[in-house]
Computed example of a mutant assay.
Amino acid sequence: MKATRNTSERLILDDTPWFIGIAPARLILAFAGASLDAASTGGETLWFGLGFAAFCLFVRRVQVILDRPGGSIVIRRQSVFGSSQVEHLLADLSRAEVESATSRSEGRTRTLFSPVLVLDGGLSAGRHPVVEAYTNGGGPHRLAEAINARLPASAAEAQTYGR
């Protein structure tokens, strides 16, 4: 996830995991292709269908908009199958944090991270994940830092933005 717009009024963060969608699609195509090649001839339409289906399953666009003039946080999720939008009050946002999950496999320990928004007030109080996947990169930490940098630092500034 990266900041596509970072102005004093608006912070827009986007995540479109192209690699995550393309890599499994290619793997599925390779295995399916080897099987289909042996079983049939002229399966180009089927190849396209399998690739498109795999791509659709794995690619989901997420956009987070922190809008100071509007006093809102908008989280948009889009996939080929549809879209959803959740809106929260910016005044309810206390901070962004990074959650971690640890997995152990074959004697190795691996820690993955995911950014969450922590809302202390309103009907939406609680922890709200920004993206549904965990990653081992530094992206979630950079995202949390970018969001926290946008929050009012002082009580006077907080009053200005309705907190």
Rank of each mutant, 00 (worst) to 15 (best):
R110T: 15
R104N: 06
R110A: 12
A149R: 08
W18H: 06
E9N: 12
R150V: 00
E99T: 13
A149F: 01
A54I: 03
G126Y: 03
S8A: 13
R61N: 10
G49M: 14
A153E: 14
T16V: 12
R68E: 15
F55Q: 03
G42H: 11
E157G: 07
P24V: 00
H88R: 05
I73R: 01
V80E: 03
V116N: 09
P140I: 05
E97A: 13
L89G: 15
R150W: 02
A23C: 08
V131C: 05
S103E: 10
P115I: 03
L112I: 02
R142S: 09
V59M: 07
N6Y: 10
I20S: 09
V59T: 14
N6S: 11
A101K: 14
F58P: 00
A101G: 02
L27V: 13
S100D: 11
W18L: 12
G162T: 01
G49T: 07
S100R: 13
A34D: 08
G21T: 05
G33N: 03
L11G: 01
F55C: 11
T41M: 10
L29W: 04
V131Y: 04
V59A: 06
A38L: 08
A38I: 07
P129A: 03
N136Q: 10
Y161H: 14
Q85T: 15
P24Y: 03
L46Y: 06
V59P: 06
T135D: 07
A38K: 12
A96R: 04
Q78H: 11
Q85N: 14
S84M: 07
F55E: 07
G51F: 12
D120T: 14
P140K: 06
F52N: 01
N6T: 03
S100T: 12
T16E: 08
Y134D: 04
A39S: 12
I20C: 00
I22C: 05
S105F: 08
